[in-house]
Design a protein around this nucleic acid. Sequence first.
DNA 1: AATGAATGAGTATTCATTCAT
DNA 2: CATGAATGAATACTCATTCAT
Lengths: 233, 233, 233, 233
Amino acid sequence: MSEVSRRENNKTKRRTAILDAARAQFANKGLQATKMEEIAEMADVSKGTIYLYFETKDDLYVSVILDDFMNIEEQILEIFETDGSLFDKGKSTYLAFIDHCMQNTDYIKIAQYFLTDDARKNMSDKLIETVNEQTSRLIAYVARMVQVGIDSGFIREEIDPKIFSLMIWRMTVGLLELVFSGDTEKLGVGDFHDLFESAYDVLMAGIRKPAQKKSIRTNVEKLAERLRPDGII
Amino acid sequence: MSEVSRRENNKTKRRTAILDAARAQFANKGLQATKMEEIAEMADVSKGTIYLYFETKDDLYVSVILDDFMNIEEQILEIFETDGSLFDKGKSTYLAFIDHCMQNTDYIKIAQYFLTDDARKNMSDKLIETVNEQTSRLIAYVARMVQVGIDSGFIREEIDPKIFSLMIWRMTVGLLELVFSGDTEKLGVGDFHDLFESAYDVLMAGIRKPAQKKSIRTNVEKLAERLRPDGII
Amino acid sequence: MSEVSRRENNKTKRRTAILDAARAQFANKGLQATKMEEIAEMADVSKGTIYLYFETKDDLYVSVILDDFMNIEEQILEIFETDGSLFDKGKSTYLAFIDHCMQNTDYIKIAQYFLTDDARKNMSDKLIETVNEQTSRLIAYVARMVQVGIDSGFIREEIDPKIFSLMIWRMTVGLLELVFSGDTEKLGVGDFHDLFESAYDVLMAGIRKPAQKKSIRTNVEKLAERLRPDGII
Amino acid sequence: MSEVSRRENNKTKRRTAILDAARAQFANKGLQATKMEEIAEMADVSKGTIYLYFETKDDLYVSVILDDFMNIEEQILEIFETDGSLFDKGKSTYLAFIDHCMQNTDYIKIAQYFLTDDARKNMSDKLIETVNEQTSRLIAYVARMVQVGIDSGFIREEIDPKIFSLMIWRMTVGLLELVFSGDTEKLGVGDFHDLFESAYDVLMAGIRKPAQKKSIRTNVEKLAERLRPDGII
DNA sequence: AATGAATGAGTATTCATTCAT
DNA sequence: CATGAATGAATACTCATTCAT
């Protein structure tokens, strides 16, 4: 390994260490309550070093979520590769997302803070832009799927793919926020699995074309590749 | 007017003045960025006076939203009183809520902050409890409506009224948050009216019983009163 | 009872109620930590009323101690009236003082604060003057006793009565402060009675004339009246 | 000088600068009236820097006195090294202590505050412990001297060394407090030297063995070394 | 690149005191 | 006399960020 690449390697390791420490702290105590010092300690670097890798605390915060974001994307894409009907694949993807969020609560917590007024005050436009881009990309996936559904005759033509994407996104995230707040019990919801599955089913029933024709199903294979993120659609 | 009641009257006026000033400031700059001093100035009272009416900044913050909450409830109940089909009334109520929120952005902003980890750290259990109670009540309205729909044969029996309430609540609030963040344009949504109406329609389509029987429709009138918040259901 | 005297009576009762409440609070939490509100509540009057009887918090504080002071003086004078040798009476008086202070810790706590720089900043000259006068009077008693002892040949002529008074006063109060601080245990002193009695005996041994002549004792009776606070000495 | 030791050196200098500034301010205005900002300015550091060296204002306050304490100890030990009779050495030490306190009034002022209820509320147990340890050590010196006096036959066997130590300590400090309060004049004491010397002489007369035997005096030399703080006694 | 000492802006809250009723 | 609502001065402490080494 060359001197340069070893150095590069070290830098990456350190960046990851800081990111991991930050994720842990943020998830545990929230943004405000987390001190840069604590992150530094946990990452085993000095306070100053963090600023060599991230411009501000908010930058670090968003970087954490961006990191998660990329992980989610990766996982979701894998599911797309598998065979199966459009609705089955949709549901698998949806449930995989829920699963991921239930295991990595940080992502939702960031998303929560991100739309907040307080957050916007402290955040650079560049940061907002970056997260927006990522979000748009994820939404576009869903929209594309819906479009495929429409084209294939599974989904009603009146449905606006983009609006539906926002709907399912905000609803899902909203329910996750509720679950993480711990208030669900007080609100009388016991089984999370049930909650999310029911929500999905209602949404699907809401866009499904009443009388599906079998013949159309044969088009699925052909359409699958249109779902790729860098696809033509 | 007696001495005591005049004093009471004054106290109420002052409380309202503080509440209004706080609402304006919070909506404009967010919780953190708003200084108690600024609220005091705008309400034309001294800093110390605020603390005679509200225990802490957070208490004041939540009190603002609770105030909005009660206004919303009032408006919504009026709509229940009007005649019309179940789904029509539901839609009117939903749109009235959207309208209110579009005009009083504070409510959503509080709701947003409320589920946040950071908020929970600073908030008294009593405060959380109070907001939860209010929320539960609003959710119960919706759930009751759904139940009526089921009983009347409009809505599928498999639908869980409570889960559906949480769905529509979180989705609606989530979309409002998105709109208020100003990112909707970047995400390519132009017409808000369309957005919210489409969302509602999808949700309704998702729970509607496919083959509605005309005969049942005649029951609507009879069922209407069961929707009252203090109803027997 | 006339209208005027009934009013006077009420005023006195109220003043006493405030004084008692203040004493209890001050003794329990110290000066700084005690709020005027708490005193008002305990005395069952409004906050504003306290200021009709006492100019400031510090005034109230000192008034409490002055009140105690007068009680102490009264008790001590009674002992002077009894028969007995000079040293016996001295010791009885000293022990009575100790007893009183052990039972009414407030007095010492005030005295402690009184000589403090912090106290002086907030205290009016008039207040300082008043306490000084009281103190001087008490010291004068002791000095007069010592002078009698000298005149009677019990105490060495070289002893300066005033200096000795200051010595025994400051030492006694100092030891009481130590006891009240709770640190005496850590400093290894178990029996308070022993502590104070030993201290007294050492002081007496320090001023006693080595060879006492019996014949002088007959003068005691004659000298007793010279000890009266309003005596001619 | 190495990098590390230079840094250490700087830290020590800064700590001293803060300590000196604090001493000056505290002595001048008392604890409450002194603002952290003023100390920072005088020490030519920022407000935040003080908190790198001292945890709280009270910690700083006590640290000042602890610093003085160590100086006093040093001076006193030197006097022990000189030759002379037990009582002479005792008196020299006593007068040196008085001198030091008259020149560094802070020490007494802290001691005064230290036994106060108000102080105890704000002070950490660790801080109280530390001061108590120092005090105990100083008291132990005196007690050891008294014991030597007893063993040598100069001092009466009935005298409890520990009690006597507390007596002389509290009396001396008490008189110093009185002097610093400025009330001594009003109480009619003019010459401080006289006051303290007389006080000492009375105390000594109070514990001295009436008929001293010359032969014992020869033991003084031998006993002197037992007075060392790290001595075997 | 890494460090960590230094900085200093930033603010909610308390409570003795006043005064209109 | 009594009240208690209103006042507003007063301040220790935190922590993100910087920068000399």
